[in-house]
């Protein structure tokens, strides 16, 4: 795996290089990879491990020359821990961070466009977190709205 030589660590999981790093090293790692032909930033995902009480942020990178895929994963606390924004490396990271802020509530420092993205006027907690029960939400929000019957059916 060419990526393993560049980074030096990480293990191969299902044909992809999976690297676990601390929060601070992510920017450094992505910058080195970006110089060594890993120019395609695939996506930034956030996995909610509710039992360990942590979010896992996975940065996916792909290189067209080496045809390899690298997953850089960091763990941050579920409550109140923030992550620095890397949108200066790739422009589209800003949009991924907006989505994760709205769906999981992770705050990214330095990203000034964290406005609401998909949900307009959402008063409750971020919906993608595992402790948000959507079935209960449906029951007391949408079921409680009464249907509109007509008083005099036949006009």
């Amino acid at each position: 795996m060419k990526a393993k030589e560049i980074i030096g660590r990480g293990e191969e999981v299902h044909g992809r290089l999976y690297v676990k790093v601390e929060k601070q090293e992510v920017r450094e790692l992505i910058k080195t990879l970006k110089e060594n032909k890993f120019q395609h930033f695939v996506m930034l995902s956030c996995i909610d491990w509710i039992d360990d009480g942590e979010f896992e942020l996975v940065y996916h990178l792909w290189s067209y020359e080496y045809r390899e895929h690298v997953m850089i994963s960091t763990r941050i606390k579920r409550e109140g821990e923030e992550m620095e924004s890397l949108h200066d490396l790739f422009p589209q990271i800003e949009t991924y961070e907006r989505e994760i802020k709205e769906m999981y509530g992770v705050n990214f420092i330095g990203n000034e466009r964290l406005t609401p993205f998909f949900l307009e006027g959402w008063p409750h907690m971020p919906p993608m977190r595992k402790d948000f029960d959507s079935k209960k939400f449906i029951k007391d929000v949408f079921e409680s709205i009464p249907p509109v019957e007509d008083e005099d059916e036949g006009i």
Binding site: V13, H14, R16, Y18, V42, M43, S45, V58, H60, H69, M71
Partner: peptide
């Protein structure tokens, strides 16, 4: 485990993690 697969769709690279 964690797996990422990509497919070439008519819009571009479609990936599933």
């Amino acid at each position: 485990g964690i797996a990422y697969e990509r497919v070439e769709s008519s819009k571009g690279e479609y990936g599933y993690m």
